[in-house]
Design a protein around this nucleic acid. Structure first.
Lengths: 150, 150
DNA sequence: TCCTTGAGTTCCTTGAGGGAACCCTAGCAG
DNA sequence: CTGCTAGGGTTCCCTCAAGGAACTCAAGGA
């Protein structure tokens, strides 16, 4: 956890960061998303300290992003995405899109996505939930909402 | 910077985190986006340590996300988003969408977006850059790309 | 009975975040 | 030309989180 507590700021970015803003958390979600669900797998794949991995998994479970579920008679557990966590993967896909475009270099993107609906290799874009047209940073006005501070 | 260096991992999520994964960085971008561009403004608004703010701003400038530009004959500077940084705001908008849905509580979202194209208060959704249809975590297959490790 | 495996705990060291104080440059007021 | 002010940082110290290695514990299996 960061030193400063972001969870009480009147900002959905800060509150989201309180859930997945700590180092490693997005990479843990990525691994769970692509099917790595067990402690040992995650630890080996990420090279993360076991202590920190324990802390992160507990934090993600506490916030309803992952679910810890036994998979054996022995004390063995796996971590799976909840619906809340699955929607966070949208965020990861947008991160992938930006990283692919600006940071991948000449080797090209490390992974590709094939979209079920059209069958093509593609990438995510942002559109308006209301009209469906593109919606990027310069396409909106920012207004105070009901939950604004003061 | 996190202890572990994410920048050399063959993963666009890790590489993106290397740019904006440190604490405060996304909130700094948010503030710059909505028009807070000067050191003193950012420090006062965020309540961040001046030392850390200096480090973050330098890191973001080094990575081409922000540009440091003088605005006076005196040694005064403001920070503005580059095109690379403006595209990162997409990521922030998706974070806002998730936070609004899962964390805002009964007070409602702190800010609202009005989409220029349709004039309505709306939110971002993810669609396929190829076919335009919705594209979420469960709508894709993940395949190895040209820049995959090994 | 011992060995192995998954899933953590415990302990120590290092270094990043928080906070306050200090510094430097350029204008401006007297 | 002296002192004051404001913006934009540095410097310093303290604490707590990340890294890493070693240790624990429970349940099967040889």
């Amino acid at each position: 956890m960061q030193r400063t507590d972001f969870s009480k700021m009147a900002c959905s970015i800060a509150r989201t960061l309180d859930v997945i803003g700590e180092p490693w958390s997005p990479l843990i979600l990525r691994d769970v998303w692509v099917g790595m669900s067990r402690f040992e797998q995650l630890q080996a794949d990420l090279g993360i300290s076991r202590k920190v991995l324990t802390e992160r998994l507990n934090h993600l479970v506490d916030h309803g992003v992952l679910e810890r579920r036994p998979y054996d008679n022995r004390p063995r557990y796996e971590y799976v995405l909840t619906p809340k966590g699955t929607e966070l993967v949208d965020l990861l896909m947008v991160m992938v899109g930006w990283g692919d475009k600006w940071l991948a270099g000449e080797a090209g993107p490390p992974v590709l996505y094939r979209h079920h609906a059209c069958g093509e290799i593609s990438n995510v874009d942002l559109c308006c939930a209301n009209c469906g047209k593109p919606m990027h940073a310069n396409d909106v006005d920012v207004l105070a909402g009901p939950g604004a501070a003061q």
